[in-house]
Design a protein around this nucleic acid. Sequence first.
RNA 1: GGCGCGGUCGCCAAGUGGUAAGGCAAAGGUCUGCAAAACCUUUAUCGGCAGUUCGAUUCUGCCCCGCGCCUCCA
Length: 479
Amino acid sequence: MSEILLHNTLTNRIEPLAPIHPGEVRIYTCGPTVYSFAHIGNFRTFIFQDVLRRFFRLRGLRVLQVMNITDVDDRIINNATAAGVPIREYTEKYIKAFLEDIDALHIEMPEELVRATDHIDDMVVLIEKLQAKGLTYQSDGSIYFRIAKFPSYGKLSKIDVSGMQAGARVDVDQYEKDDARDFALWKSPKPGEHFWETPIGRGRPGWHIECSAMAMKYLGDTIDIHTGGVDLAFPHHENEIAQSESATGKPFVRLWLHAEHLIINGQKMSKSLGNFYTLRDLFAKGSKPSTIRFLLLSVPYRRQLNFTEDGLVQAKNSVERLRNFVTRLKDEQFAAGSNPDIQKRIDKAEADFDAGLADDVNTARALAAIFDLVRDINASMDRREFLQQDAPRAVAAMEKFDSVLALLADDDDEKLRGLGIAAAKQQLQPAQIEALIEERNASRRRRDFKRSDEIRQQLSDSGILVEDTKDGSVRWKYR
RNA sequence: GGCGCGGUCGCCAAGUGGUAAGGCAAAGGUCUGCAAAACCUUUAUCGGCAGUUCGAUUCUGCCCCGCGCCUCCA
C-alpha cells in the first residue's frame, strides 16, 4: 500500500502522513459555532474530515479526533440576549440539531466532542502561561496577544500582516489595541453580558484560544492533523499557531488540511443573496441524506464545489447505481463455483480505491475505481461468468468501500423521519403497499396488464418504485 | 494591490510530456407482457497566444475568464 499523502497548507506541499504516536492519528477539527443551524457548506468540511478519518481506520490506524463546539461568541451572546435566555440554553437546541444532522449524513462522532464553555479553566491557564512569558497586554480589561512577539506570524496563510493598519479594513473591536494585528485572548464583558469570574478577570474567552486550549488538552502539544475550512486559515488558525507555539515552544500542528468552500450556482453562499441553505432546507425540498453526502464527497476537498440542482440529480442517480449493484449481488442467483478473474478484478478495484484516497483524499479517483468494478461485474453477471462464490467477495469489497463512503445503507427515509421530515408523497403505509402489490401480482397472473400497470402507476405516484425480478419475485423501494 | 484556487465531453470530474479515467444526462440497440435494473454502441483534443521539446492538455511566460482569502465566516 502506498503511503498516505496529504496537502499541507503550512508548506503548500503534498506530504506523507507520519503520526507522532505510531498507529494512531490525532486530529483536531474546528467544529460549528452553534448560534444557528449549520449550513450545507459546513457539512462539506465535516464530510471531508469524516472521509479522512474513515480512511485512516480502513488503513488500520486508530483515530483520536477532537471536534470543538464553539458555544460562546459574539453572535451567540447577542442572539441569546435578544431571546432573553442564558447562552447555554440558547445553544442547546443548535447543538442537538447539529448532532442530528451529522447522524443523518452518517458523519461519525469524533472521539471527543468538546464545548468551549466546559473548558474555560483550560483557556485561562493557557492565557496565564502566555502572560507569564510576557506575550500579552491588557486594555480595558481585555487581554491581547502581542503579534510582534511571534516572528513567524503569518507562516500558515502566507499573509503579510506588516501592512495591516488599525482602522483600515481591520476590526478595531471597540477596544484599544496596541497593534491592529493583535487579537483578543480574553474579552472583558460589556454591560449586562454574560461573563466568567476567573483569575485573569471577568470576561469570556476569545475565539482562537478555545481551539488551542482544547486541542492541546486532548491531543498533546503537537498534533498530527488540524482540519477546517479554508476561510479559517487566516486569522483563526494563524492565531492558534501563535498562541500554542508561544506557550509550548513546540510545533503545534504537523499537517494543516483545509477544505475548499462550497459555492451555490457559482456564487458564494450568503443570506443576502438568498442562496443560504441548511441541511434541513434541502431535506424539506426533497433531497435525501445520501444524495447530499455523495455530492459533497464526490468533489475532492481542495476543489471548490459548485452546489447545483443538477448536481443533486446526478448525485442521487449515482448513489442509486451503487445500491442497485449491491442489491443485484445479494438477490440474484449465480451458478456454482468461483471465477478467479473476478477475484483479481476485485483486488484491483480495492487497490485503486485505496490509492485514490491515499493521494490526498482524491475521492473522485476512489469513486471511479468503484464504478469501474460495478460496470465490469455487472457485465460479467450478464455474461454468466460471475459465480456463486464470487458474490460474497464482491459484497465484501463494496462494504469495504462503504466503510469510507457510507452511502449504501438505504436508510434515507428513516433518517428523514428522525428529523421529523417525511416526503409528502409517501403517504402509503407498508401494509397498504404490500396489499397493492399483491393485487398487482394477481392481475399479472391472469395477464390483466392494464390493471397491473395502473397499480404500478398508483404506487409510483406515491413515490414507490415496483420492480419485477427475473425469478418472478417483486420488490419495491422508495424513489 | 498581496496570497491562493480553478478554467478538460451537455453537466460533474480524474489524469499524464507521447494524442484524455469515471459518474450523470442524451441517442440507438439487447433484455422485459410493459417497465425498472443491467449490458452493448455513439458523443471531447483539454480557455487564448507564444516558448521549451522529436512530441504538451500535461513544463515556462504572457493574456483572458471565474472563484476564494486578506474583516466575522466551514
